[in-house]
């Protein structure tokens, strides 16, 4: 009797405050630790931004200086001028990169979600073997796969097409493995209930599983997008018209030391889309909690 009364009292105390077991001292420690690590991790990012605003005289200063002394927009202006006067129109490279990035990322999310659901939640012969195969594939060094991959691409007639980038992106094992990890946590009871209500497996995946694993899809989107956006074609693309944005910028850099500043500006511009996507995706992840937190 007294014990249940105590539990009740504790419960009331819990309900009154949103912050369970949290003290101000711990909060401070957390912010200081994360802040210090983040400050140090931000150095390359800050350095790249600083670099892009440096005039040529400062870019090759020795010893190198971290901060810019006389900031200039010359590098960005130079980048704009160079991009406007390319042999293949700049838009072409931009389109290629956007196409590969979007087709690859969304293709990966769709294909991986479809496969992850049975791997995590169905019982069928070969399930454990396939799950382990996915992990094994992650452990084989990719540095020796170029020659076999090239032979396969040639055989399939995919060399010098965007599909040579998009199709391999859709079967990235990291994406599938991530998806399976999150789908394990979807309550089996909920899936069973939907099945009894007459929902088919595709409907269950779309309506019940996908909303719950939104943090996984968003994490996958961040990762796939940034990888594909950086893609230089993996050595499969030779036609100038089909090349990607990083290749175009690398050509700017190949123009010599005088282009170093312009290349620094290009590096910063290239970072903007993945960072915007990162903010969007993280926002969605935080939002997810608000929903699943309400239901018991």
């Amino acid at each position: 009797m007294t014990q249940s009364a105590m539990r009740k009292m504790k419960w009331r105390k819990l309900k009154s405050g949103d912050r369970l077991n949290r003290g101000i001292g711990g909060d401070l420690l957390v912010v200081v630790f994360v802040g210090a690590f983040a400050a140090f991790s931000s150095l390359p990012l800050v350095f790249a931004i600083m670099h892009s605003f440096k005039p040529l005289s400062e870019l090759f200063l020795f010893p190198p200086r971290f901060f810019v002394m006389e900031p200039t927009l010359a590098n960005y202006v130079g980048l704009f001028q160079l991009s406007a006067n390319m042999w293949v129109p700049f838009n072409r490279y931009l389109f290629n990169s956007l196409f590969i990035t979007f087709a690859g990322s969304f293709g990966q999310i769709i294909v991986a979600s479809l496969a992850a659901y049975p791997l995590a939640k169905h019982v069928f012969p070969g399930r454990i073997a396939l799950n382990q195969l996915v992990v094994f594939a992650l452990l084989f060094s990719t540095t020796v796969l170029m020659v076999p991959s090239y032979v396969i691409m040639t055989y399939l007639g995919l060399v010098d097409t965007h599909l040579a980038i998009i199709l391999p992106a859709m079967q990235r094992t990291i994406g599938l493995f991530l998806m399976v990890s999150f789908m394990y946590q979807v309550p089996t009871d909920t899936i069973e209930a939907a099945r009894i209500d007459g929902c088919n497996e595709f409907g269950i995946l779309w309506r019940i599983v996908m909303p719950v694993v939104k943090p996984a899809t968003m994490t996958m989107l961040i990762f796939a997008f940034q990888e594909l956006w950086r893609s230089t074609g993996d050595g499969f693309i030779f036609t100038e018209n089909l090349k990607t944005l990083p290749v175009a910028f690398a050509q700017i850099q190949a123009g010599g030391v005088a282009r170093a500043g312009v290349f620094a500006a290009a590096t910063v511009i290239m970072m903007i889309p993945p960072i915007i996507l990162f903010f969007f995706a993280q926002h969605k992840i935080i939002e997810t909690m608000a929903y699943s937190g309400v239901k018991g």
Partner: peptide, 22 residues
């Protein structure tokens, strides 16, 4: 379990061609 295999098919077809085979 045919539904499971249908769902697995797109990924694992690509996976065998572009990862397992190399």
């Amino acid at each position: 379990s045919w539904v499971s295999y249908v769902m697995l098919a797109p990924f694992f077809t690509l996976f065998f061609i572009f990862t397992v085979l190399p």
